[in-house]
Every structure is written in structure tokens, then in C-alpha cells.
Computed example of a mutant assay.
Amino acid sequence: MNSITPDDFKVIDKIALAKLPTELKIDADDDAKEKALDKIQTKLSEWQDVMYAHNKYSVLICLQGMDTSGKDSLIREVFKEFNPRGVVVHSFKTPNSTELEHDYLWRHYLALPEKGKFAVFNRTHYENVLVTRVHPEYILSENLPGIDKVEDITPEFWENRFEQINNFEKHITQNGTIVLKFYFHMSKDEQRKRLLRRLENEEHHWKFSPGDLKERERWDDYMKYYEEAINKTSKSNAPWFVIPADDKEMARVIVAQIIWQEMQKLTDVNEPELDDKVKANFAEYRKQLEK
């Protein structure tokens, strides 16, 4: 487990998703994975408290993946030791009428983390170059100048969106937000098994939607567009990490370990020192309180 390093999963050069593993073969049972995650949970929680007091950086965790890839359960397990004030989760659904009156990045700007805090985007601004590529008719609801029909959406339109997203991430990282992006790389067969479990387990019936099956039919299209989006937007300031996701427990350990190791690069994060005058008067403050 200690051999996990961010560079093993970071997208530095152009990738082909079909050539990347969906499961990491490692000699560890579920108990070992749980213990490893527990240790990292504690370290991350303690570090976030220090980051909160330091009040100069924020952290944006972006999670993307096909339905059932394990994003929700990862959020629950990786961040459960955090002080509730230190992490906020945003699950972006279909844009509502108010959001559609603004540009597509507007609602994501509003959800950015405050200094000292983590934000988790469960599905992200990348939906605007993923779902909309598979279903370009969705773009029409944005009511954009010059886009009156699907045929008006040119390759240049998508190139502009990639540039806009890169600029968005460059802007926020230059202003103190650490951006880490994770793609949950799950096999199509593993998704089939997880969807079947939703049907077989009554407690999970609510998670199932016939729409999941319709989107599954477009699997190859999604893989094509995920690959393109990752290759065009994995930058040193906002890298993508491709996480083998067929083993949910191992995926959680990998993501937590990457976050922890990336946070260690912030060598200037320390708890602020009390003013010397305040510390010099501790004895007097103590007397006042004891009275």
C-alpha cells in the first residue's frame, strides 16, 4: 500500500483508456485496505484543520466516472473524519432554469471552496464536454448566440470549451485553489454487475434508473469523449488521475493516498502563531478566568 504514488496514476502524457487497467492487482484483503484508509483519513482530517487555520489555500476535488463507478461511496468513506465545516460536497445535476440564464461555468464558480476548506464536485464542469458530446442537443438549452441547431455545434466549439475550462482552472489555481481531478476507470462488465446488484437488492432499488441502461448503450462514445477531455485538460496546475475503479475499496485507498501526498507539497501550511503580546499575557488571562 505504501508503494502507491500519485505519478502512477497521473496523466502526464497522452493516454488511451482502453490500455489502462480498471483494477489494480495488489496483495491486500479488505481488512488491510480498510486499515490503510483509516490511517489516511485521520492524517487528512488533521491536516485540513491546520489548513483551515492557515487560511490561504483551498482544495477542489473533482470526481468523474460512469454511473455506479463508486463516486458517492468514496466521498462518504474518504472524507468522513473531516470536521463538517471543512468540506462541502456538490453534486451537479441537469442545469436548472436559473443556471441556464448564465454561462455553463457560473454555477461551478459559485460552488468553489472558501480558503481553508475542501470542496468535492461529484460530477463537475466536465459534464459540459462529456454528456453534451454524447447528447449535443443539450447545448441548445443554453441559448447561445449562433447555436440554433445541433448542426451549428462545430469541432471548434468543443475546442473553445476545453480552452475555457483550462483557463477556469488556471485562474483558480493561481489564486490559491489546489485542483485534483479523478476519473474512475471502471470496466463495462463491472458496471453490469453493479447495476444488477441494484435490481437484486431492495435497499438499492432507489438508485436504479432505466436511463442508466440508455446511457450504457453509449459506452464507447463516453469512453471516446472522456479520453479526449482528459488528454486536453490534464495540466500541471490541475492534473487528472485515472483510478482503477473495479475494486471500490482499493480505489478509495488510492484516491485518499494521492490527496494526502499532493497536500504534502504545500510546505508553507502551518498553524498561525499567536501574537507575542497575547502570549506574554497568558498569566493575566488565566487569572481573569479563574476569578
Score class of each variant (00 low, 15 high):
Val89Ser: 13
Val89Gly: 05
Ser91Arg: 00
Lys93His: 07
Thr94Tyr: 13
Pro95Glu: 06
Pro95Gly: 03
Pro95Met: 04
Asn96Leu: 06
Thr98Ser: 12
Thr98Cys: 05
Thr98Tyr: 13
Glu99Arg: 00
Glu101Pro: 02
Asp103Ala: 06
Leu105Asp: 07
Arg107Cys: 04
Leu110Gly: 10
Ala111Glu: 09
Leu112Asn: 04
Pro113Ala: 07
Lys115Asp: 08
Gly116Pro: 00
Lys117Asp: 12
Val120His: 00
Val120Tyr: 02
Val120Pro: 00
Val120Cys: 05
Phe121Ser: 02
Asn122Trp: 02
His125Arg: 01
Tyr126Gly: 03
Asn128Pro: 02
Leu130Met: 11
Leu130Pro: 03
Leu130Gln: 03
Val131Thr: 04
Arg133Pro: 02
Pro136Cys: 10
Glu137Thr: 03
Glu137Asp: 14
Glu137Val: 08
Tyr138Ser: 04
Tyr138Ile: 14
Tyr138Asp: 09
Ile139Asp: 05
Leu140Val: 03
Asn143Trp: 06
Leu144Asn: 03
Pro145Gly: 04
Pro145Arg: 01
Ile147His: 04
Asp148Thr: 15
Asp148Tyr: 12
Glu151Pro: 09
Glu151Cys: 07
Glu151Asp: 15
Asp152Gly: 06
Asp152Gln: 03
Asp152Ala: 13
Ile153Glu: 11
Thr154His: 05
Thr154Arg: 01
Pro155Ser: 05
